[in-house]
């Protein structure tokens, strides 16, 4: 288990991608098969882990690759 990792560095772009696809969070949650609450957790960068099954379903629903879903913010000095 790695030591303390600042998880807030990892930004999930699910909100932006859903907006680009003109999808509401409810529609996307239905398409992916997870709750709106969990989708909101993901969108607001409060998730600590993501299942591969959720990742694949998100990519299918948003028509993107896993790499498009996440960006990593640089380390703060």
């Amino acid at each position: 288990m790695p030591g303390e990792v600042n998880l807030s560095r990892l930004h999930c772009r699910v909100g932006e991608l859903a907006y680009e696809q003109s999808l509401t969070l409810t529609q996307l949650a239905d398409a992916v098969g997870i709750s709106v609450v969990n989708l909101s957790v993901l969108k607001n960068d409060r998730a600590k882990a993501i299942r591969f099954s959720t990742l694949i379903a998100l990519c299918d629903a948003l028509g993107c690759q896993p790499g498009d879903l996440f960006t990593l913010r640089p380390l703060e000095p």
Binding site: I34, N38, L39, V41, L42, R46, A47, A49, R51
Partner: peptide
Amino acid sequence: QRVKNDADGLV
């Protein structure tokens, strides 16, 4: 409890 802690924040 350990399993629950591991699953915390899992989406």
